[in-house]
């Protein structure tokens, strides 16, 4: 990680994001704020990747940072007092869980149906890139097509998806990353 390798960073993210997100959500029961906390932890990790000296394990560091962020969020009163009261009295799973799971499944469905409607060639390239995390070069080798064709098809796929999903701001965010980090 200390070499500033973005692939190592992505691998690290994939390894820990889920446990961190669940740990945050359990404690604040807020979808958007949980996402934000995970975002901040990793942005911070990336910014400090060259200078950070971690004396404990990386896992302990990440969960320590998570606890710190959660404490800060509650301290900062961004969580309204009434909500905090509610949060502390909520014994287990209820409203928020159901609603928030629905939200993510809807996001996935909107994406999925748009992907299914893509022209076959574009869909293939898109799926290899997105579902299997292949690079353009790997896709080009596997599908026996030039790299610049992969790139063009990906660009077209994204354009179509973006057009179809333009009413969903959140879907736009999900799509954006492939533009930046193909």
């Amino acid at each position: 990680m200390q070499t500033g390798d973005s692939e190592a960073f992505a691998a690290l993210y994939r390894k820990y994001w889920r446990r961190l997100f669940d740990a945050a959500y359990r404690r604040i029961l807020l979808r958007e704020e949980s996402e934000e906390i995970i975002q901040e932890i990793f942005v911070d990790l990336w910014a400090k990747r060259e200078t950070l000296l971690i004396s404990v394990s990386l896992e302990a560091y990440l969960f320590g940072a998570l606890r710190y962020s959660i404490y800060n969020l509650i301290r900062s009163r961004k969580i309204r007092e009434a909500y905090l009261e509610h949060l502390l009295q909520t014994p287990g799973e209820e409203g928020n869980y159901i609603e928030d799971r629905l939200h993510y499944d809807e996001l996935a469905r909107a994406l999925e149906s748009s992907v299914q409607n893509l022209p076959e060639k574009l869909r293939k390239v898109y799926m290899l890139s997105r579902k299997e995390h292949l690079t353009y070069k790997e896709i080009s080798e596997r599908e026996q097509i030039p790299v610049d064709t992969v790139e063009k098809q990906m660009g077209r796929a994204l354009k179509i998806l973006r057009e179809n999903l333009k009413e969903f701001a959140w879907a736009w965010i999900v799509l954006e990353m492939w533009d930046l980090y193909p």
Binding site: A10, F42, W46, Y104, I173, E176, M177
Partner: peptide, 11 residues
């Protein structure tokens, strides 16, 4: 979708 969404925010 969630994994990608948060990662996109980070990037």
């Amino acid at each position: 979708a969630l994994e990608n969404k948060i990662f996109a925010r980070i990037e």
